[in-house]
């Protein structure tokens, strides 16, 4: 498998899309999981603890509980998903400040018309999903 390609399960992509749409105009966030080969095969919605429409933050303890419960089912956390309401799917300054190396960041641009083409980012390089 080409290491520059990260696969995402179609159903998971649809779930994330729905989540982005239903949260609009607020940002939403989720953790992304892989079974074995690095592809995104599972996701788990997380509470956005930020009160602002165009910010998200995840409670570290909630995230830890989530990754622990999925680990028991054989999943490993591989990255994060969040939406950018009315903004392009590029890493913002705020995003970059908190980026964890080697984690995947999947971004969905979303408007009131729906969720646009998602893009996947990993520290310092860009990949298409």
């Amino acid at each position: 498998m080409n290491s520059n390609v990260v696969k995402i399960d179609k159903k998971i992509k649809q779930r994330l899309c729905d989540l982005a749409n239903s949260s609009y105009p607020c940002e939403c966030c989720a953790a992304l999981f892989t079974k074995t080969d690095g592809s995104i095969d599972e996701c788990c919605e997380l509470t956005n603890t930020s009160s602002s429409n165009n910010r998200y933050s995840i409670d570290p303890v909630e995230l830890y509980e989530c990754e622990s419960s999925y680990r028991k089912k054989g999943y490993e956390i591989t990255g994060f998903f969040h939406s950018h309401p009315d903004a392009p799917a590029v890493m913002s300054e705020e995003d970059e400040k908190n980026v964890i190396p080697a984690m995947l960041y999947l971004l969905a641009p979303v408007t009131k018309e729906g969720c646009g083409r998602m893009r996947l980012w990993i520290m310092d390089s860009r990949k298409e999903a």
Partner: peptide, 13 residues
């Protein structure tokens, strides 16, 4: 002792 990440960000403003 837990060592955890604080994941945060937002749309470009």
């Amino acid at each position: 002792l837990l060592l955890l990440p604080f994941v945060a960000g937002g749309a470009p403003e």
